[in-house]
Design a protein around this nucleic acid. Structure first.
Ligand code: MN
Ligand code: MN
Ligand code: MN
Ligand code: MN
Lengths: 149, 149
DNA sequence: CTCGGAATGTAGCCAAGGCTACATTCTGTT
DNA sequence: AACAGAATGTAGCCTTGGCTACATTCCGAG
């Protein structure tokens, strides 16, 4: 277990606009995270069992059902999902397409973590947060790394 | 540029409690992210120029100064920072210690990204979000990977 | 066919983290 | 010493994403 606090070569503070842009991107990425998790999960549930019901979604996310229903409303407003009362949730074209991208990214992130030696459950758990902050450039680099083995 | 949508081996849905726990951990991690970024930045500013003033903090984070001041108030409530009106911000012992851990983790995450081939600016940018979702187990794995070179 | 329990939906509360507008304090220059 | 402009602080607004409590709807067992 290496000592992470040792030998700190001086890294100069980034320029102000550079740093602001980095923080800004992290905030932007975060703001989309919840919707990404919802569409990915809904897509999984639809594939797996043919239906995605609010209670199941809520239980899998570990939130109250009212919370899930409210967020599903947001998915509808943003054109990602469709749902009629008491009928379960479905994804629009846009929703399916987002889900596909999100699922692929999730998989690559987990695989990358495993490839560098992260234990399985930590990889799955951390990936759930990390995935939302992986840019296209980083995703491509991960895929390249995995392809080389 | 590899096609990430191809050959999807079936990955079964995780058990409900498992998945809920993963999402829950991601939410928890996220809730601490802002404070982590603040203490790291404040510590950097103090080291670099001897003072950390609200306007500088706000500019570097890319937020309005009122936003920064409100969050500094939260840092004080949580025992991480001390500030007297018009006097700049300082860190408590707890704040310094958190900052040190956060800075070390930030560095390891960036280095890991660079090591697997992520371009520099993407590494720095993505790390700003990723770092908050890297557990101790994952951090240790990253450090081990970097140590092997 | 009925009816009770599960699922769904609604209402209203809260804290976090953005913002703008305005008020106050400090400080460097004249 | 005065004052203009910068920095700081305050007030109040908004959205997001949690929650609980309650109301409504559905559906399967009997
Ligand atoms: Mn996720
Ligand atoms: Mn995911
Ligand atoms: Mn960060
Ligand atoms: Mn950081």
């Amino acid at each position: 277990m290496p000592d992470l606090t040792m030998e700190t070569p001086i890294r100069p503070l980034p320029e102000e606009p550079t740093q602001a842009s980095r923080f800004g991107k992290a905030r932007t990425a975060q703001s989309g995270a919840l919707l990404e998790d919802y569409v990915e999960l809904i897509s999984d549930l639809l594939t797996d069992g043919g239906e995605a019901r609010p209670t199941d979604i809520a239980r899998r996310l570990g939130v109250a059902h009212a919370t899930a229903i409210k967020t599903i409303g947001r998915l509808k407003r943003e054109g990602l999902a469709v749902a009629k009362p008491y009928r379960g949730v479905f994804l629009t074209e846009a929703g399916e397409s987002l889900a596909a991208r999100v699922r692929a990214r999730h998989r690559v992130v987990v695989d990358l973590l495993l490839a560098v030696g992260v234990p399985f459950e930590a990889a799955e758990s951390d990936a759930e947060g990390i995935e939302h902050h992986v840019s296209d450039a980083t995703l491509a680099a991960f895929a390249r790394y995995l392809a080389r083995g």
